[in-house]
Simulated scan of single mutants.
Amino acid sequence: MKSLLRQLLLMTAVVSTPLAADTLADIPLADEITLSEQALQLNGAGIRSKFFMDLYVGSLYTQSPSQTLDSVLNAPRVAIRLNIVSGMITSEKMQDAIIDGFDDATDGQSQTIQPQIDAFMALFSAPIAQGDQFTLEAIKDLGVTAYKNGEKQATVEDEAFRKALLKIWLGDKPAQKSLKRAMLGK
């Protein structure tokens, strides 16, 4: 009986031990990032693929573990990081995908945040290359600050915009369901 109990305890310890971040699609994943002097922990990461091609690695960073959309939306600060792994992604394709994402995230009602979407889309007007990294820092009641390759680009202020942006990857109609599950650590 003691042997069985010991085995169960060992199995529980192995299952509940968090795994250290490593790499995904040859992209090193940081266990922690610091934005605006605030540390965020890797919550989960996955690969966005289409037609059997890996496009980017999407990572979610949070202050505390979050496994639901509501917990992410209600968190004071989170970040989504996109590491481009395909040379097939162009500025135009990224813009089209983001426009479709906002449409899905708002159930076709994106007109109320259209000025913010337009400002955000300007961030993707420059060429995008394999190896580029976009970090989207979402701060509750403020908006989203975007970074490209570690350099701050702009802040788009608006709470409804912030929520819609997060829903592109984590909402009811995400960019990819398996990516959503992975980012939420499921």
Rank of each mutant, 00 (worst) to 15 (best):
S125D: 12
G101F: 10
I99K: 14
V78N: 07
P76A: 11
K148I: 07
L170M: 13
I98L: 15
A122D: 14
S125M: 03
D96L: 03
Q111N: 11
K163C: 06
S64C: 01
Q95E: 13
G44Q: 09
T145A: 10
F120Y: 15
D103G: 03
A154Y: 02
I80F: 00
T106S: 15
I113C: 10
A97G: 08
R162K: 15
I139Y: 03
K163N: 14
G150T: 10
Y56A: 00
T135N: 04
D100H: 08
M53A: 07
M121C: 02
S91Q: 10
G171I: 07
V57A: 04
E151H: 11
D104S: 13
L136R: 00
L55E: 03
A122V: 11
S66C: 14
G101Q: 08
D158Y: 08
G101I: 11
L73Y: 06
Q153F: 07
Q95K: 14
S86E: 04
N74I: 03
A105W: 05
A79W: 05
S66G: 07
A97R: 02
D141G: 07
I98F: 13
W169F: 14
K93G: 04
D158E: 15
S86C: 03
G87N: 13
I80N: 00
A175D: 00
G131W: 00
I113A: 08
E159I: 05
Q130F: 04
A160I: 11
I168L: 04
G87W: 08
D103Y: 12
F120T: 10
Q63G: 14
G101R: 08
Q116W: 10
Q109N: 13
V72I: 13
E157W: 04
Q116S: 13
K148S: 11
G87L: 06
D158L: 12
R48Q: 09
A45T: 06
M88V: 04
A45Y: 04
F51T: 03
S59W: 09
R162Y: 12
N74P: 02
E157M: 13
K148R: 15
E151R: 11
A75C: 07
A154P: 01
D70E: 15
D70M: 10
A105K: 05
I168Y: 01
L142M: 11
F134P: 02
F52P: 01
E151A: 15
E92C: 02
I168G: 00
L73I: 14
D132W: 03
K163P: 00
K148F: 08
I89L: 15
T106N: 11
Y147H: 13
V156Y: 09
E159N: 13
A75P: 05
G150V: 12
Y147C: 10
E92I: 05
T112E: 12
F161K: 11
S71A: 13
D54M: 03
L73E: 15
G143D: 12
D100K: 10
A146Y: 09
G44R: 03
R81K: 14
I98R: 00
E92W: 01
I47A: 01
T90F: 08
Q153A: 12
G143T: 12
T90Q: 05
F124Y: 14
L170C: 10
M121T: 02
K148L: 14
P65V: 09
